[in-house]
């Protein structure tokens, strides 16, 4: 009987046989190489990696204590001792920038872990269940999306009082709606696919379908969206810091550094130029990384 024959996998190597994770790791390495082949996304990867290194190894990289004041060397211009000069209290701008990367990463990290799950949950649920669930969730999303985000963040911080955590919550509240819409749009294309129908036929609960089937397929585009979002988060955080509503002094936040440096800008350009350049570079890097990830993860662009 022909059909009783067992089909053998000819190209199934011994290495793969012993390690079930092999295919996954190989896939990851291959994707990473592909990402770095594009010079633009490679530069994004490098800058984001530098930012991470700065944040982790801040005490090793910084030449001075970022909070130490030295009134004898106030507003010193860039020199060998102070690479990026000093500010109005004689603090080293380079060291403050390096430590500021921690604040920036902290904000990005917190916002992303709030926005990602919330957007995913709201979006997939409204897309999957449809009907009144969809209507209610999407109207709430519309309300949040129709507010100007900075104004909503301002109102929120004004109500709760200034502070880094409050700025994070404010930014998160204003940035989840686009993520939810994206997840909903993805879910709508997936919910009638054969494998979802098969799972329903196996008696899978809605919860299981959402977590094991639909979320998994939404993740790539969501990761791209969140990476692009990080650039906006950095800018909004800097804007809130600039307005005095984000990180509070003496915490070295880049937006707040520009804000205080503004008064001395005409004589001491380095107070504004270096933090400004840092904000620009990092948000640009996240945008480039997002573009690269989109080329990599989105099957439609292939």
């Amino acid at each position: 009987m022909k059909n009783a024959e067992v089909v053998r996998n000819s190209d199934y190597s011994l290495k793969a046989r012993h390690n079930p994770e092999y295919t996954r790791v190989a896939l990851f390495v291959k994707s990473f190489k592909k990402l770095c082949r594009n010079p633009l996304s490679a530069s994004g990867v490098i800058i984001v990696a530098l930012l991470l290194i700065c944040a982790i190894a801040a005490p090793l990289i910084a030449t001075h204590n970022p909070l130490e004041q030295d009134l004898a060397r106030v507003l010193a211009s860039p020199s060998l001792a102070h690479w990026f000069g000093t500010d109005e209290y004689g603090r080293d701008v380079f060291s403050r920038l390096v430590y500021g990367s921690r604040v920036t990463l902290y904000i990005i990290f917190l916002v992303t872990i709030i926005v990602g799950p919330v957007g995913l949950l709201v979006g997939t649920m409204s897309g999957y269940f449809g009907g009144w669930v969809d209507s209610v969730f999407m109207r709430i999303t519309d309300i949040f999306i129709s507010f100007p985000s900075l104004v909503l963040a301002l109102a929120f911080v004004a109500a709760l009082g200034p502070g880094l955590e409050h700025a994070v919550i404010a930014i998160a509240i204003t940035s989840w709606p686009p993520v939810a819409r994206l997840a909903r749009a993805e879910t709508l294309t997936l919910r009638n696919s054969d494998y979802v129908v098969a799972a329903q036929l196996q008696g899978a609960s809605a919860c299981r379908v959402l977590f094991h089937y639909i979320s998994l397929m939404c993740l790539p585009s969501l990761i791209v969206r969140l990476t692009m979002n990080m650039a906006t988060v950095i800018l909004t955080a800097a804007a809130l810091g600039f307005l005095g509503l984000g990180a509070q002094p003496p915490l070295p936040e880049w937006g707040a550094m520009i804000s205080t440096g503004r008064s001395y800008m005409l004589e001491s350009w380095w107070l504004v130029a270096f933090p400004g350049a840092a904000i620009m570079l990092v948000s640009l890097a996240f945008n480039l990384l997002g573009d690269g990830l989109r080329d990599l993860l989105d099957p439609r662009t292939e």
């Binding site: 009783a4 024959e5 067992v6 053998r8 199934y12 793969a16 079930p20 295919t23």
Partner: peptide, 9 residues
């Protein structure tokens, strides 16, 4: 008519 080598694929 398949064998267990297909499982991790």
């Amino acid at each position: 008519g398949l064998d267990e080598t297909f499982l991790p694929r």
